[in-house]
Design a protein around this nucleic acid. Sequence first.
DNA 1: GTAACAATTAAACAATCGTTTAATCGTATG
DNA 2: CATACGATTAAACGATTGTTTAATTGTTAC
Lengths: 126, 126
Amino acid sequence: MADNAQDVCSEYGVSVEEDAVHLRDSLLEVAGLSELFKVLADETRTRILFLLSKRELCVCDLALILEMSLPAVSHHLRLLKVMRLVAYRREGKQVFYSLDDEHVVELISVAGKHFGEMRETGGRNG
Amino acid sequence: MADNAQDVCSEYGVSVEEDAVHLRDSLLEVAGLSELFKVLADETRTRILFLLSKRELCVCDLALILEMSLPAVSHHLRLLKVMRLVAYRREGKQVFYSLDDEHVVELISVAGKHFGEMRETGGRNG
DNA sequence: GTAACAATTAAACAATCGTTTAATCGTATG
DNA sequence: CATACGATTAAACGATTGTTTAATTGTTAC
């Protein structure tokens, strides 16, 4: 019967019908993962994490480099703290942040590799 | 002078001042990467990509498994097409989609590893 | 204690995003 | 050609998100 059939919809393909349960269950494997991608979905946060992977920086340094307002930077750092991606320590009036996660750089690296290969093969020019 | 100094701000730390240029330039390395993370930032899209990494599926199959409306699924697939992450072929009335990118599964894998280790060490309980 | 600076927080606003509903397109069938 | 079904598109709506502005907290120096 339908062994590797792939249609379902109305015409009772039944195909996936059995697999549907299995496939739906398998979604547990990726449950919640998008929360991490949400963090990197903002260009500013990707930049912050990338900078912090190079060296420890205080908030006003980041604001200077990124040419952004202090509250804006602080706002992003708050999320990074909640997600436990950065560590911070107070030194006088300043607060220094550093990267506290090993997977972030890996994710950035893979994404970079992706667009790198994209440019070689994919490009939409001739 | 300031060699590994890390303060700047107003009190003329000058520290990063030189590095600021270098650090700002280095941001080119991560320019645009968040576009890929934006795709995965939505739980539904992560699920779709994950399902397509397991087998080819038509739109109504996805709608069935994800328990979502057809337009909603189609809407997400549109973005995945634009981003060249999926391939598609028409077969009669149905359109079958499949994963057409090797990095997506890698990203999902790393994210999964992240939360996996998070649960071991990080947990917010004692 | 006051002043100055770094940082955080809160409220307000614009902009973006995802779903729904309805309409349209494409293909197969009678 | 009309009907049915799968898929896409468009408009509309609600919800979320990121930045700005202003106010507040924490620390150092006078």
